[in-house]
Design a protein around this nucleic acid. Sequence first.
DNA 1: TGTACATCAGTGAACGCGCGTTCACTGATGTAC
DNA 2: TGTACATCAGTGAACGCGCGTTCACTGATGTAC
Lengths: 207, 207
Amino acid sequence: MVDRQSYLCQHLFVPYHHGNLREALIQAGVELAEEGGPEAVVLRAVARRVGVSHNAAYRHFADHDELRRAVSARAMGEFGVLMVARIASAARGRSKAAAWARLNASGRAYVEFATTRPGLFRIAFQYSMDEVDVDQPHPYGQLSQRLDELVAVGEVPAARRADAEIAAWSAVHGFSMLVLDGPLRAASEAERAAGLDEVLRVVRSGI
Amino acid sequence: MVDRQSYLCQHLFVPYHHGNLREALIQAGVELAEEGGPEAVVLRAVARRVGVSHNAAYRHFADHDELRRAVSARAMGEFGVLMVARIASAARGRSKAAAWARLNASGRAYVEFATTRPGLFRIAFQYSMDEVDVDQPHPYGQLSQRLDELVAVGEVPAARRADAEIAAWSAVHGFSMLVLDGPLRAASEAERAAGLDEVLRVVRSGI
DNA sequence: TGTACATCAGTGAACGCGCGTTCACTGATGTAC
DNA sequence: TGTACATCAGTGAACGCGCGTTCACTGATGTAC
C-alpha cells in the first residue's frame, strides 16, 4: 500500500481523511524527482500531484525541507532494494568466485540505478547519508558486506579492507557521475559497457 | 584585469560605461558559486554584487542561462589552471617515474579542486563539457595527456589507453564526490589522505 | 444502538518574497565634419 | 581644435510567476455515554 488510498488509487476518489497522505506525498515526491531531479521536489507540486491542497502537507511534514529529506530517504531505500536484488540473483554460496561475482553485481547495480533513475540517485546523495529509511537495505551497507565476504574468503587482506571499500566505491560512483554529467554522457551503450568492465577490472585487480 | 574596472576595483568608483562589465559579472558569478553553489548564481544577485542594475546584465548575456554557462566555463578553466600548476611542479622529464608522478599529481589536483572549491567544481560539471573557455587548459585534457605520456613511455599498453582513462577519471571523480556528499564528508584529514592514496594505488596497479 | 462531542486531517484565501524578463528612458562615449 | 550627433551601455519602474508559509475555517471520524 503506497498512499492516500494508493494516491487517488489511480483515479478512485477518496474524498477525505487519511488514505495515508504522508505516504502518498513521499511517493509523489519520488516521481517528481525521477522526472525533474531534486529541484522538482517542490512542496506545492507534490501536493498538486496527489490532488490535495498544498497546506495538507503541513499535517505530515514540518516544512519543505522535511518532505525533501523523506523523499531522499525513500530514494536511498529504493537504491538499496535494487542492489539487494541484483546481488541475490548474481551468485550464491561461499566460494571465492561467488564473492567476487557479488561484488561485481553490486558495482553494476550501482551504475544501473544511477543511470536509469538519475533523479533519485541525485536526491539520495543530496542529503548525504543523514536520512535513512530504517529497515531498508542501504547501498553502502551492501557494498560493505561484499568486502566482508571477500575478507572472510581470503581474497582481500583484512588490513586493506577499509581503504578497498573507499576505492571500490569511488570507482563506481565516479563512473556513474561521468555517465550522467561527464564525457561519457554522449557515449554509446557499448562504450559505456566496456568502460564499466574496465573500471570493475581495475578495482578487482587493485584491491 | 578582471572586471568593471576590477569590479568596482575594490571600492574605486567607476561611474559609467564598460570597465568590462561582462568580465565583472562572470567574476561575481564565480564568487557566488564558491560561496553558495550553482544555485547561488542568480542573475539579480550577480548584478547586485557588481553594484550594477540587474538589467545591465542583458547587455552582455542573452539570459540567465547564458550567464550561468559562462560562469561554468570559467570554473572549468580555473580547474584546468590548478591542474596544470600542480602537474608542472610535480615532476619533469620523460622517465617512467616522472610520468607516473604527473598522473598522481593530476589525480591529487582533481580532488584538491573539488574539495577546496566545491561550488566551482559543481557548477563546472553542471553544464557538462558543453561550455569551455577556449585557450584555457581543460582538466580532462590534462588527464588525457598524462595517459599519452604513460603509453609513450611504455607503462600502459596502447590498446588499454582509452579504458584506462575512464577508470582513472572515475576513481578520482568518485573519490571527490564521496568527500563532498558521501560518507567521507565526516572523515578526518588523515583518513581522506589515506583513502586517496589507496585510490591512486589501485588505479596505478590496475591500468 | 443512538446521540453529543472532541479531535484533527484537510480546505481556501492571503501574505510577502525574490526571481527572470521587458519597457521606455538617460546620458556618457567617440566619430564625422 | 570645436561642435553635432549617433551609438549603445547602463537605469529604474513595472510585469507576472511560483514559491513557502500562515491563518481561520470546515467537516469527517471515532469515542464516551
